[in-house]
C-alpha cells in the first residue's frame, strides 16, 4: 500500500508539472503560426507564402504554416495555442466564439460561389428530395450545412427538415460519390468541385449560397486568437498588412498570380484562370454576411447568443459590410 501512495505522489507531481508547463507556453518570442485548408479559396495565402510578404512586412517574425484537414482541427489547434491565426468559414467561427473561445475575426479572405448539385433529373428544388436521397457535405456546422438549413427554414419552416439525408464527406470524396452514382444524389460544395460537377450533363445546380443568403457573403475569414493579438501586436499588424498586400497583388499582377497558384496547387494555368474568372469568386479583406449567419444560427440553437457589438467578434479595423 505504501508503494501505491508513492505512485500517487509521483502522478500528482507530474500532473501539476504539466499544468504549469501549459500556462508558461505563451511568451515565445516573435512567432506566428497560420493554419489553412486546401483549396483555391485560400489563394491569397499561397501568394503571401511564395512572395514572403509576411516576412518582408516584419523581418523579426518567424512564420510557420500549417495545412489542416478540416475546420475542427484548426479550431482545436488554436484552442491548444498551437496556431495563432486560422482560416475558416463564418459558422464554425461563431460556434467557437459561442463556446467561449477567445478569438476574433482579423479580416476576410475570399468569397466563393457555393451550391447544391443533384444528379437526379427529378430534383429541381430542395422540395423534391425524398427519403432515399443522400446529400453529401463537409460536416455539420459547416457553412454548407448552415446554408442548407437556412434554405430549409425558408422552404419548410423547419431548418432540420433534411438533416436525416445528410452524409459527411470531404469535398473530393463527395464529388467522387456523386459522379460514381452511388447512393449520394446531391452534393453541397464549392469550386473547383462545384464547376467540375456542373460540367457533367446529368448534374444540375438546385440551390446556390447567394440565393439562400440573399446577397454576397464572405466564404473564408481569418481568425486570430486573443493571446496572439494582445501579446504580439506587431506580428498581428504585420499579418494584416501582408494579407492586404497579397490580395492587392492578385488584383494587379494577374499573370504572376496565375503562375504562382498553378505551381502551388499543381494544376494547369488554364484551370487556375478558369477558377479566378468564375462568377462570384472574389478575394477581399472585407467581411460580409456575419449578421445573417449569427441571427439564423441563434434562432435555430446552433449558438446560444448573438454578438452584441462588432467589437465582440472582430479585432479593430476590420472592414465590415452588412
Amino acid at each position: 500500500m505504501k508503494r501505491t501512495i508513492k505512485w500517487i505522489a509521483v502522478l500528482l507531481v507530474l500532473l501539476l508539472g504539466i499544468n504549469t508547463g501549459c500556462s508558461k507556453q505563451a511568451p515565445d518570442l516573435k512567432q506566428i503560426t497560420i493554419a489553412e485548408q486546401y483549396g483555391l479559396a485560400y489563394a491569397p495565402l499561397q501568394i503571401m507564402k511564395e512572395l514572403r510578404l509576411l516576412e518582408k512586412s516584419d523581418a523579426n517574425l518567424l512564420v510557420n504554416w500549417r495545412q489542416m484537414g478540416n475546420t475542427a482541427a484548426i479550431r482545436e489547434a488554436m484552442l491548444a495555442e498551437e496556431v495563432d491565426v486560422g482560416f475558416m468559414a463564418i459558422p464554425p467561427f461563431l460556434i467557437g466564439w459561442d463556446k467561449g473561445m477567445e478569438w476574433k475575426i482579423a479580416g476576410g479572405l475570399s468569397s466563393s460561389p457555393v451550391g447544391l448539385v443533384s444528379n437526379r433529373s427529378e430534383v429541381s428544388t430542395i422540395k423534391d428530395f425524398t427519403e432515399s436521397d443522400r446529400i453529401a457535405l463537409p460536416q455539420p456546422g459547416s457553412v454548407q450545412h448552415i446554408l442548407l438549413s437556412m434554405a430549409c427554414e425558408k422552404e419548410f419552416g423547419d431548418s432540420h427538415k433534411l438533416d436525416n439525408l445528410l452524409i459527411t464527406m470531404a469535398h473530393p470524396e463527395g464529388m467522387n460519390a456523386l459522379m460514381a452514382e452511388t447512393d449520394v444524389t446531391a452534393h453541397f460544395t464549392a469550386p473547383p468541385y462545384l464547376t467540375g460537377e456542373l460540367k457533367s450533363k446529368e448534374n444540375r445546380l438546385i440551390l446556390s449560397g447567394e440565393e439562400v443568403m440573399g446577397g454576397e457573403f464572405t466564404f473564408i475569414v481569418g481568425v486570430a486568437t486573443k493571446s496572439f493579438h494582445d501579446e504580439n501586436a506587431e506580428g498581428y499588424k504585420a499579418f494584416i498588412k501582408a494579407l492586404e498586400e497579397s490580395i492587392s497583388f492578385m488584383e494587379t499582377n494577374k499573370i504572376e498570380t496565375v503562375e504562382i497558384l498553378s505551381n502551388a496547387y499543381a494544376i494547369s494555368k488554364e484551370e487556375v484562370e478558369e477558377y479566378l474568372d468564375t462568377q462570384g469568386v472574389e478575394y477581399a479583406a472585407k467581411v460580409q454576411g456575419l449578421d445573417k449567419f449569427a441571427d439564423f444560427m441563434k434562432r435555430n440553437d446552433y449558438i446560444s447568443k448573438t454578438p452584441a457589438s462588432k467589437a465582440e467578434i472582430m479585432w479593430d479595423d476590420v472592414y465590415y459590410e452588412d
Binding site: R134, A136, I167, E173, N176, A177, T182, D183, V184
Partner: peptide, 9 residues
C-alpha cells in the same frame, strides 16, 4: 473510399 464506391454510404 473504395467501399463508398462499391456499397455507397
Amino acid at each position: 473510399p473504395i467501399i463508398i464506391l462499391w456499397l455507397g454510404t
